[in-house]
Design a protein around this nucleic acid. Structure first.
Lengths: 197, 197
DNA sequence: TGGTACATGTACCATGTGGTACATGTCAGC
DNA sequence: GCTGACATGTACCACATGGTACATGTACCA
């Protein structure tokens, strides 16, 4: 079975492929049998590896969070491009059509986690905080004083998520690019002003 | 039964009370029997009035959209306050703790609608567009040229939703107020600049 | 008074669900 | 080659689900 996925153990392989399946079909109509059929295994195996349906969702949420943190780490080690380039690169990355199903899944799990949902709530802890730290670092590097940098970082995250929600609903790339650009230029303007003082 | 709700017909009354119930308990574990018990009726009645579980969700999504549009209309007829006051008032309104369960439900339905979910997808059409028009009007009134106003309006919507997502996850009012304020002052700054030309 | 449309309740059904019991396969290390 | 741990498959179960059949109530209008 190892050749079926990059993962080294069958459980991880199942999680990875389950994420693909959920990204495509959503979580609302999820059944162990349906998922197992899509993965070419039996629902018995899912129970065996994850203990329960909730256990599976926990694993999926954890892996989603892990991937986000990995993407973030990659962002951190970006070449010494200027802040504007990094921001725009990140924006383009988040709006890659190939990523759309995963973005949808992310928001689906996010919404689920906002309930007292045992399975996905662990995701909630890091969903904002873990993004904030590197963003603050990034904004500070652009010359913003620390106290204002925290607010700017939070704002950047909100804009990224808000625009992504819009994008998933409307798919209006041109309008969204314009809105994003408007935000970026405004930010750059203010950062330049801050630099001058 | 009429006294049980402000609605004039039992179906509307059921929808209104169903929204309250879903706002509190979420939609993921929704069952007709559970909902009916919470509403003091039988699951037979829900089928009778809405045809099916999906029909019920359609009605809920429609009513949620109707309420949003009503809130928007109220915003439109706001007294002649200056743009900054209106924005801040809207922000405070959206972050009213009493509204949080409904915000959660909104994002839950939003996430559902992002799938090809027949029940909630109708909501998707208006979820961005119907907010845009009055926002554009508002931004234009603040002195922004029309072509830029569209982008600003879209950005405002994204910020509102993005910050709301953050708020529902973290509840960190102080940090969110700071981020919002940062956005508002930046916007005002730019609007002032535009006015000067 | 009778009838008609709406509303509600009771009982039921077929189906699919998550989860379990248990037997079997696979393969590394002794 | 035997053993034991991991992995997988088959068959099954109790249960809750969405939906239906049908009888009943209620209120208004002729």
């Amino acid at each position: 079975m190892w050749y079926m996925s990059a993962a080294r153990d069958p459980r991880s392989a199942l999680v990875e492929r389950a994420i693909d399946h959920l990204a495509e079909h959503g979580t609302t109509d999820l059944t162990l049998r349906g998922l197992a059929a899509g993965l070419g295994t039996s629902h018995r195996m899912l129970i065996y590896h994850f203990g329960s349906k909730d256990g599976l969702l926990v694993a999926v949420a954890r892996e989603m969070e892990r991937r986000q943190l990995a993407a973030l780490a990659a962002l951190r080690e970006a070449p010494g491009a200027d802040a504007g380039q990094v921001m725009r690169g990140m924006y383009r990355h988040l709006h890659d059509p190939a990523l759309a199903p995963y973005m949808r899944l992310f928001f689906e799990l996010y919404g689920r986690a906002l309930r007292a949902d045992e399975a996905t709530r662990p995701m909630l802890a890091g969903v904002v905080e873990s993004w904030l730290e590197p963003l603050v670092e990034f904004v500070t590097a652009a010359g913003v004083p620390p106290d204002e940098a925290a607010a700017d970082a939070r704002l950047c995250l909100a804009v990224a998520r808000g625009l992504a929600l819009d994008w998933l609903a409307t798919g209006d790339d041109a309008a969204l690019d314009a809105a994003a650009e408007r935000f970026f230029t405004g930010l750059e303007q203010r950062w330049r002003d801050a630099d001058r003082n």
